[in-house]
Amino acid sequence: MKMLVLVKQVPDTATQVKVGSDPRTIDQTGITWIVSPYDEFALEEALRIKEKRGQGASDEVVVVTLGPERAKEVLRSCLAMGADRAVHVNDPAFEGADTLTAARALAAVVRLESPQLVLSGRQAIDDDMGATAAQVAEILGWPCMSWIMEEAVAEDASSIRVGRQVEGGLEVFDVPLPCVVTAQKGMNEPRYPTLKGIMGAKKKEVRELKAADLQPAGLGTVVTVLEVVALEALPPRPPGRILTGEPKDMARELVRTLREDVKAI
């Protein structure tokens, strides 16, 4: 069974993000880059599926990313965690690509690789669009299950049972393979790479693809359907009021203010 995990390199949450000299992009100096956390849940789940099935080298976990040269770092992290090999769609043509262009390119990689299962995070934490993986499924005409919390692949690898999180509960489906699933937080705890894993990652294959390599599938072109006009810093909230003193007085004053001045209740 072959599994493809779509990952994205994103700025670390704690890193400071500023608008760049081109206001449509961020200033990349000094940014710490990480694998988007939800994608790590997806990779962890793929590794667990492989381990649980115990089929050894006949099962394969391939990580795929679309991004510039620096995105190789996240592929190395994923290989160190245990992925078998990596595919890097690295072409300046895709710089600033919108979600649909990225989805088309990634769908082309899925066509080239023909996995049984595609996993990804429920959203990347940079632009938070949360659409790419579902769009890959739509382009391929595959079923898709988003925000899954649990899964079990059938023994004959013909289907997967997933529990997807919805408001108020969990919906369980049997989905025939191939399909696309997106991981929600809470489904697992991603492992840390071991030293052996980190050393071994250096020898694993990272295949680089250009836009032209995706063209046989007809999906390597840039189709801009959504355009960023500008990024801007969040307007600061007006300074707040700090209440101190006796707890009883603070509580009374807060409730009075919320009721009478702010009318929040």
Partner: peptide, 23 residues
Amino acid sequence: VTSRHRELMARLAARLGAGLAAD
């Protein structure tokens, strides 16, 4: 922005070849 509308609108955008602005 609900769990099902997020997926629905993403797929619909791909089907229609249209842009999606989420959230």
